[in-house]
Design a protein around this nucleic acid. Structure first.
Length: 723
RNA sequence: GCACGCAUAGCUCAGCUGGUUAGAGCGUCGCAUUCACAUUGCGAAGGUCUCUGGUUCGAAUCCAGAUGCGUGCACCA
C-alpha cells in the first residue's frame, strides 16, 4: 500500500523527470532495455525507427506550432521505442538564412543601425552569436515539451560537415548540368534587397487604375505607366484582325512620354485579344511575361527601375523618383500631351508581394544560380505514383503531384550575407559561373577574363532540403548507413513545397533513395479565436506559459485530442485546462489503486473473478485499438480513446465497482480486484506514456517493483508496449 | 482559369473500413460532498449531421450536382 500526495503537481515534477530520462541514456538508439536485447523477447529486434526533427529556426523562441511538432514526433518516438525498435530522433537547428536575417535586422533597427552600414563579415559574426544564443534557448524549451530526442546527435545547418555536403551537392548538380547561372527575370524585394524563388512570393487581389494610353496608331492598356519609358515594342496577337495591317517587325515613329521614339511591331500569341485593346507594349526587364516575349523574339531589354525601386535616368525628368510618387506625375504628363485616352478606376488584378514584408515585388533581370527542377521532379512523381511515399492526410499527395508536374526552375541565389556562401566564381563579362570549392580557378574558361568570387548565399531551403541525409552524416557515417532512409517526416503542411518536396527530390538525387517513406503533415496552430498567430496582432501564445500554468502533459493533450492531420487547430486554453484535470484524474486513479493494492499479494497471480477477466479482456481490446490508431497516425483518436477509457470506464466503472470487493473483505475477490486494478493501471500508464509522458512517469516511479509476471524498469519510457 | 479541402450541438471540433437511441471538450442549468479526486461526482437541456438527387436492406459516412466558406497554383499589358 502506498500513499501519494493528494494532487499532481506538474511544476514540481517535470524537470526532474526529464533529467531522469536524459540521464538514463535511453534517448540514444544504442541503449536498449533488457527485454529488447533479443529476438525472443522483442519481436521488433533489429528494426530501426528514425525521425529527423525539422530543424528549429535559431532566431527566436519556441512557438505553439513547435509544441505540436515536438508532441507529435515524441508520441511516435516513444511508441516505437516501447515497441522495441532501435529508435532515433535527431534534433537540430536551422540557421534559417533569410528568416533570421530579417529577425536580426529588426534587432538592428531597434538599436538604430542598418545592415547596409555594417561590413558583411562583422554582420555575419553578430548573427552567428545571435543564433548560438537562440539555439541553447530553444533546445531547453524543446526539453520542456518533453521531447525524447538524442541530444548527442544534435546538428546545426552551418556545421562544417553539413556545409561540406551542401557544397558537394552543388558541385554534383553543376557538373551534371542541373545547375546553371542564368540571366533571367527574378522576383526582387526592394526592401530586403534580395531575389527570391517563386515560393517566397504571395499574391494579393487589388483594385487599381487601368490606363488606356495612345501609342502612335495604337491604344495600349497598362496598370503601370511608370515602367513604360523604355517601351519600344508594341505586341499583338498574330490572329488579331484589328491589327492585321501591321506586320511583324514593322517600324513606327511615334510621340512618347519623353519625346519621339521608333517602335517596332511584334506579333506574339501570348497576347490575349480579349484583354484591353489587344495591343500592349512590353517592359521585359520588369515583367515576367514580357521577358518571355522578349526572349522569344530576341528583343532588347532595358532596366527602368533600380534595385531600390527608383526610376533610372531613362525616365528623364522623373529619374530618381520612387515609382509610387512618379506614377501620377507621369500620367499627368501623358495627359498633357493628349496621350491618355481613358482611365478605368476599377481594375481588379493580383499583385505580387514579398511574403515577409508585403512590399511590392519588383521583378528584375539578374544573373542568378538556378536548379533545373524537371529532372529532379520526375523520379518523385514516379515514386508517388508507385505509392512509395505515403502522405498523411492523403490529399497532400495530389497537391504535391500538381506542384511537381508544373515545377519551374529554382532560383537558389540570395543577396544576403546570413547563409551558406555559394562556393563559386563568376564572370562579369559572360555572366557565367562555376563552382570552385578549393578556390583554384581564376580565369573564365569561356572568355578568359578574370573571375570574381560569388558573394551571394544559398536559399536556406537548398541546405535544409538536404537535411535528412546531411544530418545523418552522408555518405560514410555509421548513422547514415544504419538510419537512412528514415521512416517518417513530420512537419507543417505549409512547407510541403518549400521543404518536403525538395527533400524528396534532393534526397533521391544525391543518395539514390527517398529520404523517408511517410510524410505526416500537421496544420497550423491558431489562437483560440481561430486566427493566425502573429507578433503584430499580439495574439501569439507562448507554449511555455501554458506548460507552466497547466503542465506539459495537459498542453500536449490539448494539441493532440481532436486534432486531425492537415487541419488547423484553434488552441483553446479551456481545452488544455480540461486536460490538466485529466492528469490529476489519472493521479487520483493511481492514488486509489496504489492505496488499495497489497504489494506482497501481487507477487502471486490470483485466480481472477470472471468479471475481472472480462474487464482485462476489454482493456486488451482498447490497447490493440490504440496501437492500431498510433500505427496509422490517428493520434487524435488514440488519445481520446485512452482519455475516455481512463476516466469513464476505468475510474467510473471498474474502480467504482471494485469498492464492493474491498468492502466485502472476501479474500479471493479482493485479490482478484487488486490484481486487475494494478495491471490495468500499469498498462494504461504505458499506453498513455507517449501522450502524457510526465504524469505517467511520475506515477510509474511509485509503482511496486515487481509482480508475478513483471519487473519494473528504470523508467516507464523503456517499458515494453502492452499490445 | 486549374487544383485541393471544409460544411455535424451555443462555441471548438471528433465520428477511422456505411450498421442499433450521432459523440467529446468548453459553455448553460439542476443535484450531490468527511468514504482516490471540488483540478470532483451524478444528471439535464441542446442536433431535420448545408441543400437536392442517386447507390444500398440501411447513408452524417459512398456517388453526382447545387450553395456557402477556405487554401494552393497559374494568369493578370
Amino acid at each position: 500500500m502506498r500513499e501519494l500526495p493528494k494532487a499532481y503537481n506538474p511544476q514540481g515534477a517535470e524537470e526532474n523527470l526529464y533529467k531522469l530520462w536524459e540521464e538514463s541514456g535511453f534517448f540514444a538508439p544504442e541503449a536498449h532495455p533488457p527485454w529488447a536485447g533479443s529476438p525472443e523477447t522483442n519481436p521488433n529486434y533489429g528494426k530501426t525507427f528514425t525521425i529527423i526533427m525539422p530543424p528549429t529556426n535559431a532566431n527566436g523562441d519556441l512557438h505553439a506550432g513547435h509544441g505540436l511538432v515536438m508532441t507529435l514526433e515524441d508520441i511516435m518516438i516513444r511508441f516505437n521505442r516501447m515497441r522495441g525498435k532501435k529508435t532515433l530522433w535527431l534534433p537540430g537547428n536551422d540557421h534559417a538564412g533569410f528568416e533570421t536575417q530579417v529577425v536580426y535586422e529588426k534587432v538592428l533597427e531597434k538599436q538604430g543601425r542598418s545592415r547596409f552600414d555594417i561590413a558583411p563579415e562583422d554582420l555575419y559574426k553578430e548573427i552567428w552569436g545571435f543564433t548560438q544564443n537562440n539555439r541553447s534557448n530553444i533546445n531547453s524549451q524543446v526539453k520542456k515539451i518533453g521531447a525524447s530526442c538524442d541530444w548527442s546527435r544534435e546538428k546545426f545547418t552551418l556545421d562544417r560537415d553539413i556545409v561540406k555536403t551542401v557544397y558537394s551537392t552543388f558541385e554534383k548538380l553543376f557538373h551534371e548540368g542541373l545547375i546553371y547561372r542564368g540571366k533571367k527575370i527574378v522576383s526582387w524585394c526592394p526592401k530586403h534587397q534580395t531575389s527570391f524563388s517563386d515560393l517566397e512570393i504571395v499574391d494579393e487581389e487589388r483594385t487599381d487604375k487601368f490606363y488606356y494610353v495612345k501609342y502612335g496608331p495604337f491604344t495600349i492598356g497598362t496598370a503601370r505607366p511608370e515602367t513604360k519609358f523604355g517601351d519600344k515594342y508594341v505586341v499583338m496577337h498574330p490572329a488579331d484582325k484589328r491589327y492585321q495591317q501591321y506586320k511583324d517587325g514593322q517600324k513606327i515613329e511615334l510621340e512618347w512620354i519623353n519625346g519621339p521614339i521608333t517602335a517596332t511591331v511584334v506579333k506574339d500569341e501570348a497576347v490575349d485579344m480579349e484583354f484591353g485593346t489587344g495591343a500592349m507594349t512590353i517592359t521585359p526587364w520588369h515583367d515576367a511575361a514580357d521577358f518571355d516575349i522578349a526572349e522569344r523574339h530576341h528583343l532588347d531589354r532595358e532596366q527602368i527601375i533600380d534595385e531600390q525601386g527608383r526610376l533610372l535616368p531613362i525616365a528623364g525628368g522623373f529619374a530618381g523618383m520612387k515609382i509610387t510618387e512618379a506614377r501620377p506625375k507621369i500620367v499627368e504628363k501623358l495627359a498633357s500631351k493628349g496621350l491618355v485616352e481613358k482611365i478605368d478606376d476599377n481594375y481588379k488584378h493580383a499583385v505580387k508581394l514579398c511574403y515577409k514584408c508585403n512590399s511590392l515585388i519588383e521583378p528584375q533581370v539578374k544573373s542568378q544560380w538556378f536548379i533545373k527542377m524537371r529532372p529532379l521532379a520526375e523520379p518523385i512523381i514516379k515514386a508517388i505514383e508507385k505509392k512509395e511515399i505515403t502522405y498523411v492526410p492523403d490529399h497532400y499527395e495530389k497537391i504535391t503531384l500538381h506542384w511537381l508536374n508544373n515545377i519551374i526552375d529554382w532560383n537558389i541565389s540570395r543577396q544576403i550575407i546570413w547563409g551558406i556562401p555559394i562556393p563559386a566564381k563568376i564572370c562579369d563579362t559572360c555572366e557565367g559561373g562555376l563552382p570552385d570549392l578549393e578556390n583554384k580557378v581564376s580565369t573564365c574558361p569561356k572568355c578568359k577574363e578574370e573571375l570574381r568570387e560569388e558573394t551571394d548565399t544559398f536559399d536556406t531551403w537548398f541546405s535544409s532540403g538536404q537535411w535528412p541525409f546531411a544530418a545523418l552524416g552522408y555518405p560514410d557515417s555509421k548513422d547514415f548507413k544504419e538510419f537512412y532512409p528514415t521512416q517518417v517526416m513530420e512537419t507543417a503542411g505549409e512547407i510541403i513545397f518549400f521543404w518536403v518536396s525538395r527533400m524528396l527530390m534532393l534526397g533521391k538525387y544525391v543518395t539514390g533513395k527517398l529520404p523517408f517513406n511517410t510524410v505526416y503533415l500537421h496544420g497550423l496552430v491558431l489562437d483560440a479565436k481561430g486566427k493566425k498567430m502573429s507578433k503584430s496582432k499580439g495574439n501569439v501564445i507562448n507554449p511555455l506559459d501554458l506548460t507552466a500554468k497547466y503542465g506539459t502533459d495537459a498542453f500536449r493533450m490539448g494539441l493532440i485530442v481532436g486534432n486531425t492531420p492537415g487541419t488547423s487547430l484553434a488552441l483553446s486554453e479551456d481545452k488544455i485546462k480540461a486536460h490538466k484535470h485529466f492528469a490529476n484524474k489519472l493521479w487520483n486513479i493511481a492514488r486509489f489503486v496504489l492505496s488499495h493494492v497489497d504489494e506482497a499479494a501481487l507477487r502471486q497471480k490470483p485466480e481472477l473473478l470472471p468479471k475481472h477477466k472480462k474487464i482485462l479482456e476489454e482493456f486488451a481490446e482498447i490497447a490493440r485499438n490504440v496501437t492500431a490508431d498510433i500505427e496509422e497516425f490517428r493520434f487524435y483518436l488514440a488519445a481520446e480513446k485512452l482519455y475516455h477509457y481512463a476516466w469513464h470506464t476505468f475510474a467510473d466503472k471498474v474502480i467504482e465497482e471494485s469498492k464492493e470487493q474491498f468492502r466485502g473483505g472476501n479474500g479471493q475477490a479482493q485479490c482478484s480486484a487488486q490484481w486487475t486494478l494494478f495491471v490495468i493501471l500499469r498498462d494504461l500508464l504505458k499506453l498513455l506514456h507517449p501522450f502524457t509522458p510526465f504524469v505517467t512517469e511520475a506515477i510509474y516511479q511509485n509503482l511496486p517493483d515487481e509482480t508475478a509476471d513483471w519487473a519494473k524498469q528504470q523508467t516507464l519510457m523503456i517499458e515494453q508496449w502492452p499490445a
